[in-house]
Simulated scan of single mutants.
Amino acid sequence: MSESADQARTRRRWISLAEFVAVAGLIIAALGFWNSWSERRDAQADRAQAAQDAAKKSRYVLKGEVASDKSVKLTRDENHPLSEARVSFPKALGVGPQDALADSINADWFAKPLLKLTDGGPDDRTGRLPVLITYTYNDADGEHRASGIYDVIWQTRPGTLPLQGRRLTIANFRLRHAGGSQAELDRLWTRP
Rank of each mutant, 00 (worst) to 15 (best):
S4Y: 10
S4I: 12
S4K: 05
A5D: 10
A8V: 14
A8Y: 08
R9M: 15
R11D: 14
W14L: 14
W14E: 09
I15V: 09
S16M: 15
S16K: 15
A22G: 12
A22Y: 07
A22R: 10
A24I: 06
A24Q: 11
A24K: 12
G25V: 08
G25P: 09
G25Y: 08
I27S: 10
I28Y: 04
F33A: 15
W34P: 01
S36F: 14
S38N: 12
E39L: 15
R40Y: 07
R41E: 14
A45P: 01
D46L: 14
D46E: 08
D46F: 03
Q49S: 10
A50P: 06
A51W: 11
A51P: 01
Q52K: 11
D53E: 14
D53M: 09
K56Q: 11
K57M: 09
S58T: 15
R59T: 13
Y60K: 10
V61T: 15
G64K: 01
E65H: 14
E65F: 12
V66L: 04
A67W: 06
D69L: 12
D69W: 13
D69C: 09
S71M: 04
S71Y: 13
K73E: 12
K73P: 02
K73I: 12
L74W: 07
L74D: 09
T75E: 04
E78V: 13
L82V: 07
L82D: 08
L82Y: 07
R86W: 05
V87K: 00
S88T: 07
F89W: 01
F89T: 04
P90T: 03
P90Q: 05
A92K: 08
L93V: 03
G94P: 05
V95E: 03
G96H: 07
Q98Y: 11
A100K: 01
A100N: 00
A102V: 12
S104T: 14
I105H: 00
N106V: 11
A107C: 04
D108M: 06
P113Y: 03
P113Q: 06
L115P: 00
K116I: 10
T118D: 12
D119W: 10
D119G: 01
G120V: 00
G120D: 03
G121A: 10
P122L: 10
D123C: 02
D123Q: 06
D124H: 02
D124M: 04
D124V: 13
R128H: 07
R128G: 08
P130N: 00
L132A: 05
L132P: 02
I133F: 02
Y135P: 00
Y135W: 02
T136L: 01
Y137N: 03
Y137D: 05
N138V: 13
D139Y: 04
A140R: 05
D141S: 13
G142E: 09
E143Y: 01
E143T: 10
H144S: 10
S147R: 05
S147W: 07
S147H: 02
G148S: 01
G148A: 03
G148M: 01
I149R: 08
I149S: 00
V152I: 11
I153W: 05
W154C: 03
W154F: 06
R157Y: 05
P158K: 03
L161Q: 15
P162W: 12
P162Q: 10
R166H: 03
R167L: 13
T169Y: 12
I170R: 06
G179A: 07
G179Q: 02
G180H: 05
G180K: 01
S181H: 07
S181I: 11
A183V: 11
E184C: 03
P192H: 03
